[in-house]
Simulated scan of single mutants.
Amino acid sequence: MGFYKKTLEEQKYSIIPSQLLKPDEIFILVETLYELPITGKQIRQQVDGIRIGQARTGAQRETFVELPAKAASSKVMLELKEIVSTQS
């Protein structure tokens, strides 16, 4: 994602707008990469392994906390609810 964002930032100043990379083109390029005859399969396996590792790491970091019933009406929780509802 960082590389994609950097590329988009660099392309903002591109002289020819038709050369800008569009999000749907990324998926086509990734599939083309996975279909390379020699290394495509290995690249896909590595990417899948990274995704699995990230999912496991994320699951291990999550912590569930039981809040008292009256916490839902606290000032902080109401402000949080308002922030979350405006961002969706």
Results as ranks from 00 to 15, higher is better:
Ile15Tyr: 09
Ile43Gln: 00
Phe64Ile: 10
Glu25Thr: 04
Gly2Tyr: 06
Phe3His: 15
Pro17Ile: 01
Gln19Ser: 12
Leu36Tyr: 04
Asp24Gln: 10
Ile38Val: 12
Lys5Leu: 15
Asp48Ile: 10
Lys41Thr: 07
Leu8Gln: 14
Met77Val: 08
Tyr34Thr: 00
Pro23Thr: 07
Ala69Met: 07
Gln54Val: 03
Gly53Lys: 04
Asp48Cys: 06
Val65Ser: 04
Leu36His: 06
Ser88Asp: 08
Lys22Leu: 10
Gln11Val: 02
Ile52Val: 10
Ile83Gly: 10
Ala59Phe: 10
Tyr34Ser: 00
Thr32Pro: 00
Glu35Arg: 05
Glu82Arg: 10
Tyr34Cys: 00
Gly53Asp: 10
Phe27His: 08
Lys12Ala: 07
Lys5Asn: 15
Gln19Thr: 15
Thr7Gly: 08
Glu79Trp: 05
Thr86Asn: 14
Val47Cys: 08
Ile28Ser: 04
Ser73Ala: 06
Pro37Phe: 01
Asp48Ser: 02
Ser74Tyr: 02
Glu62Arg: 14
Val76Trp: 03
Glu82Ile: 02
Leu21Thr: 11
Met1Tyr: 14
Lys41Phe: 03
Gln19Arg: 13
Phe64Tyr: 13
Lys12Ser: 02
Gln42Tyr: 06
Lys6Arg: 14
Glu82Phe: 04
Pro68Arg: 05
Ser14Phe: 07
Val84His: 13
Glu66Trp: 04
Lys81Gln: 10
Gln11Phe: 00
Leu80Pro: 01
Ser88Lys: 12
Gln60Ile: 07
Glu79His: 08
Val76Glu: 15
Leu36Val: 00
Arg56Asn: 13
Gln46Trp: 03
Gln54Lys: 08
Lys5Thr: 14
Glu31Asn: 09
Gly53Ser: 09
Arg56Gly: 08
Pro37Thr: 10
Leu20Glu: 15
Thr57Asp: 15
Ala71His: 02
Leu33Thr: 07
Glu10His: 05
Lys41Ala: 12
Gln46Gly: 11
Pro37Asn: 02
Pro23Phe: 01
Ser74Pro: 00
Pro17Met: 05
Glu9Thr: 08
Ile43Val: 11
Glu35Gly: 02
Leu21Asp: 03
Leu80Glu: 07
Thr7Glu: 14
Lys75Thr: 05
Leu80Tyr: 08
Gln46Ala: 11
Ile43Leu: 06
Phe64Asn: 12
Gln54Glu: 09
Leu20Asp: 14
Glu31Phe: 01
Leu20Arg: 15
Leu78Asp: 00
